[in-house]
Design a protein around this nucleic acid. Structure first.
Length: 489
RNA sequence: GCCGCCUUAGCUCAGUUGGUUAGAGCGCCAGAUUGUGGCUCUGGAGGUCCUCAGUUCGAACCUGAGAGGUGGUACCA
C-alpha cells in the first residue's frame, strides 16, 4: 500500500478576522440591546441593509479593473457589475435614503448595527471585519439635529456601561477651519488636507509637532519624514491660535473662537451652528463637561461638511503588562450634507454617529466598567448506564420545561470525568440518577457552587469526597423544585 | 506603504562559542480514588525549533530571501 499525501489545511481564521466566544458575545449583545433601547427612546427606528452594495454606491473607493480590492472586498457579479462588502453603515444608508427618497417621511431617523468589512492591514484592535453601530438623521439641516445625535451618543455610551466620567464627546465644525483657511489664503485642496491632518494630530504630537507639520514638515524618532502643509508664519500662527481656543465651557470656547475665525463668512456660519448645538445640548441636559467644543477635532473623512464629533476615553488605560494603551476614539460622526445628493442630485442634509461595538466592549473592559460575564453551563445530568438513558432525558426535558438550561452528558467518559465536565462548564448543579436512585424513586442533586465554596476548607481528597459537599438526595418528584432552589441561591 | 524588533509544546518562555536524544512552568489526558468536580502525588501525550535556500563534518543558534506577529510612522471611507 502506498502512502498517499493527504492535504491537511491549517485550521485558522483569515488574517484580521476573529472568532468570538460566548462571553464576548454576551457582552456585545448586552451593549447592543441597551444602546438600541436608548436610540429608540430618541425616536430612531431600526434598519438593516445588505452586506453587499454595488461598488459605485459605496463612493470613492470604487474598485477599478486594475485594483478591484483596494480598501474593500469586492467581486464581480455574473452580470459584470462590481459588488463590494460595505465598509461602513453610512454609505448604505445614503443609498437607502436615495433609493426611497420619495417614500421616506423626513427627517428619517434610523439606527443600524452589523458587521462591516475593510480590506486593509489588520493590527491590534483593528480587524478586517467588525461590528459597527450607527444612528443617523437624514433630511434635517438644523444644527439641533446634530445636537440630538450628540445627546444620543452620550446617552448610548452611558447605557452601554461607560460611567459618566469615563468618556467625553468633543465637538467641532468643519466650517470654522474652512473659514479660517480661506482667510489666510489656503485654497488648494492638497494644502487644506495637509492642514487638517496636522490639526488632527494635536493630541498625539502636541503644539510643537503640529507647528512643524503646518510648516516645512516633521521628522519622527524613527527618522521618517512627513512633509508639512508649508504655510507661512502668519498662517501657522493663525491655525495655532485657532487650536488654542479650546476652553472649558461651551460658551467660553465659542467666545474665544469668535476672536480667531470671526470675520470670515464660513467661520461665522460655523460659530452660529455651534451656538445652536450648545443651546440644544443644554436644553437636553447634556453636561458641559461631557460634551464640549474642541477645535482640534477633524475626523479624517472628507465627506463631512459641518459639525464633526468624536467620543474619547478619558484617563489612561494600561494593559495586562502595565503598558500604556493608546485607545483612540471609541466613536465619531458628523454632518454629511452631500452624500445622498451623490445619487439624487438633490441636497439632502444628514448627520450621524457611529461606534465600533467590540471596541466599546474593549473600552469597557479596559476602563474597568465591565468584566466579561461568566458564562454558566447547564445543569448536567450524569449518564451512568446505557440502559437508563431514557430516564436521563426525561430529567433534562423536565428541567428545560421549567426554563432551566440542562443537558445529558453525551460524551464517552466515566463519572469522574463527567463531574469534571460540569465543573469546567461552570454548571450550577449536577443531577445523579443512578441505579440506586431509580430503584428508590429518588434523585441525587449536587450543588456545584456550594461545593466550590466548601472545597476551600478541605485538604484531603478523602475528606472532600466523604463530605459530598452540597449534595442531597430527594424524592424524584421534587427534582425541579430542588434544582430551582439551588439556582436561586 | 516605510523603519525597528520578534517567531522554540495548546499558552508563557528558557536553551551554553555551532556539537549526541531540544527543556521548564501552566494547561491537557490518565491513575492513586470500581458512583463524585477542588487540593496533593505519580505517570503520559504533545515539537516541520515560522518557511525556503545557503555556509558548515555538524544549524534552534551563522548568512540571505520570504511569511506571520509586534511597536512606531504614513494612510484611514
Amino acid at each position: 500500500m502506498s502512502e498517499i499525501e493527504v492535504f491537511r489545511p491549517e485550521p485558522r481564521a483569515p488574517r484580521g478576522f476573529q472568532d468570538r466566544r460566548a462571553a464576548d458575545l454576551a457582552l456585545e449583545r448586552d451593549i447592543l440591546a441597551k444602546v438600541s433601547r436608548v436610540y429608540e427612546l430618541f425616536g430612531f427606528e431600526a434598519l438593516d441593509t445588505s452586506a453587499f452594495e454595488y461598488a459605485d454606491a459605496l463612493g470613492k473607493f470604487l474598485p477599478d479593473s486594475e485594483r478591484p480590492n483596494e480598501g474593500v472586498f469586492a467581486l464581480q457579479d455574473d452580470d459584470e457589475q462590481w459588488m463590494a462588502l460595505r465598509y461602513d453603515l453610512t454609505a448604505p444608508l445614503a443609498r437607502f435614503a436615495a433609493q426611497h427618497a420619495g417614500l421616506l417621511t423626513k427627517p428619517f431617523r434610523r439606527y443600524a448595527y452589523g458587521p462591516v468589512w475593510r480590506n486593509e492591514k489588520p493590527g491590534p484592535g483593528r480587524f478586517r471585519e467588525f461590528i459597527q453601530c450607527d444612528a443617523d438623521t437624514v433630511g434635517s439641516a438644523r444644527p439641533e439635529a446634530d445636537a440630538e445625535i450628540i445627546a444620543l451618543a452620550v446617552a448610548g455610551l452611558e447605557a452601554a456601561g461607560l460611567p459618566k466620567t469615563a468618556a467625553v464627546l468633543k465637538i467641532n465644525n468643519r466650517k470654522l477651519l474652512n473659514g479660517l483657511l480661506k482667510r489666510i489664503g489656503v485654497d488648494h485642496d492638497g494644502q487644506k488636507l495637509a492642514v487638517l491632518r496636522a490639526v488632527d494630530k494635536l493630541d498625539r504630537l502636541g503644539v510643537e509637532g503640529v507647528k512643524l507639520l503646518l510648516g516645512a514638515g516633521r521628522r519622527d524618532e524613527s527618522g521618517a519624514f512627513t512633509k508639512g502643509a508649508e504655510l507661512n508664519a502668519n498662517g501657522i500662527d493663525a491655525v495655532l491660535a485657532y487650536l488654542g481656543a479650546g476652553a472649558t465651557g461651551r460658551s467660553a470656547t465659542l467666545a474665544k473662537l469668535a476672536d480667531v475665525v470671526g470675520g470670515s463668512e464660513e467661520g461665522e456660519a460655523g460659530l452660529r451652528d455651534l451656538d445652536r448645538i450648545g443651546t440644544a445640548l443644554t436644553g437636553l441636559g447634556v453636561d458641559e463637561a461631557r460634551a464640549f467644543f474642541d477645535p482640534s477635532v477633524v475626523r479624517g473623512l472628507e465627506y463631512y461638511t459641518g459639525a464633526v464629533f468624536e467620543a474619547e476615553l478619558v484617563g489612561e488605560v494600561r494593559d495586562a503588562h502595565g503598558d500604556l494603551v493608546r485607545f483612540g476614539s471609541i466613536g465619531g460622526g458628523g454632518r454629511y450634507d452631500d452624500l445622498v445628493a451623490r445619487f439624487t442630485g438633490e441636497v439632502t442634509p444628514a448627520t450621524g454617529f457611529s461606534f465600533g461595538v467590540s471596541r466599546l466592549a474593549a473600552a469597557l473592559k479596559a476602563s474597568g466598567s465591565a468584566t466579561l460575564p461568566k458564562v454558566r453551563g447547564p445543569v448536567v445530568v450524569i449518564a451512568f448506564s446505557e440502559a437508563d438513558m431514557g430516564h436521563y432525558f426525561t430529567v433534562a426535558a423536565e428541567l428545560r420545561q421549567a426554563g432551566i438550561p440542562a443537558e445529558v452528558y453525551l460524551g464517552g467518559s466515566g463519572m469522574k470525568a463527567q463531574m469534571k465536565y460540569a465543573d469546567r462548564r461552570l454548571s450550577p448543579a449536577v443531577v445523579l440518577l443512578g441505579g440506586d436512585e431509580i430503584a428508590a424513586g429518588t434523585v441525587t442533586i449536587k450543588d456545584l457552587d456550594l461545593g466550590r465554596a466548601l472545597s476551600e476548607g478541605v485538604e484531603s481528597n478523602e475528606a472532600w469526597r466523604a463530605a459530598r459537599p452540597g449534595q442531597a438526595t430527594v424524592p424524584r418528584a421534587e427534582l425541579v423544585a430542588f434544582v430551582k432552589r439551588i439556582l436561586e441561591g
